[in-house]
């Protein structure tokens, strides 16, 4: 017995090491569970203010670039508005005006962002106080950014487009081709569009946009086709998509709030129960 105690006392650091590693592994492996994300998000209440201060400083340095981006964005929006007034398409003329209020856009700033990992996250400076909730889409002026994973009262964690678990359905503008957009972990400015049934009339440079989705506005731009793999794998083709948004530079984003998500979920539950 004494020998045992001696052994333990002599090797405290080994036991300590094993115990701490187990704690870390629990933290990491449970990162898919809800409770873990609550811990994760609320831990940002401690670190958030530092990140916010850093973001403010960074924003000041990049003011010129931010202004240029805003100008670009304004230009596109203005041209859209005027073109729309001149030639409203038939579709838009007859759509229900209610449709325009499906999505609400809440502005937020990115205060922490990584791109060098295989599973990247962003942290935003707005949380449940600003009516942000889990599973909302996050977009930037140029493209989509990610999906809100969890929120604390003042901050939220966003699962980046550059994450192995990220996938949304996307389509190619004006061509009846749709697929699933995922990131393969290689290049932070490129994503893959999978499950494409035919590449016959797809050209390099075609624009890829969001297909009908509950969390992103439909037809929101994502990127352009940069490479076409002519070899079909299991009957499907894969395209490379060059992303419009430079995800290593993103700072101003909008969180997309679907005003009908509650109703939709209720319906889904009902169908499931029946």
């Amino acid at each position: 017995m004494r020998n045992l105690f001696d052994f333990i006392l002599k090797n405290t650091h080994v036991f300590l090491f094993v115990a701490l590693e187990i704690i870390c592994m629990l933290f990491i492996y449970q990162s898919s569970s809800y409770r873990q994300w609550v811990i994760n998000a609320s831990s940002k209440e401690i670190s958030g203010p530092f990140l916010e201060a850093r973001a403010t400083y960074k924003e000041y340095i990049h003011l010129k670039k931010i202004n240029e981006n805003l100008q670009d964005q304004n230009r596109t929006l203005i041209s859209q508005v005027y073109n729309h007034q001149l030639h409203p398409s038939i579709e838009e003329k007859y759509t229900d005006s209610l449709q325009n209020t499906i999505f609400e856009y809440l502005k937020a700033n990115v205060i922490e962002n990584t791109t060098h990992l295989q599973n990247n996250y962003l942290i935003l400076d707005k949380g449940s106080k600003d009516s942000i909730a889990a599973d909302m889409g996050v977009i930037s002026p140029f493209g989509i950014v990610g999906i809100v994973k969890d929120v604390s009262s003042n901050f939220s964690i966003v699962l980046s487009l550059l994450h192995n678990d990220f996938s949304i359905s996307a389509k190619i503008v004006k061509k009846e081709v749709a697929g699933i957009l995922v990131w393969d972990g290689v290049n932070h400015s490129k994503a893959k569009l999978k499950n494409i049934s035919s590449v016959e009339n797809i050209r390099i440079g075609d624009t890829v946009v969001v297909q009908h989705s509950l969390i992103f506005p439909e037809n929101y731009p994502i990127g352009i086709v940069s490479k076409i793999d002519k070899q079909a794998r299991g009957g499907y083709f894969v395209l490379d998509v060059f992303l419009f948004e430079k995800l290593d530079r993103v700072n101003k984003v909008w969180v997309v709030k679907n005003n009908y998500i509650g109703q939709l979920n209720e319906l889904k539950e009902k169908v499931k129960n029946e």
């Binding site: 090491f17 701490l20 590693e21 704690i23 870390c24 592994m25 629990l26 933290f27 990491i28 990162s31 873990q36 811990i39 994760n40 831990s43 940002k44 401690i46 670190s47 530092f50 990140l51 922490e112 990584t114 599973n119 990247n120 996250y121 962003l122 942290i123 964690i157």
Partner: peptide, 14 residues
């Protein structure tokens, strides 16, 4: 605390 997932840096540092 300052990045996305708790535990990654800690596991490697320990």
């Amino acid at each position: 605390l300052f990045t996305g997932v708790l535990g990654q840096h800690a596991a490697a540092s320990v």
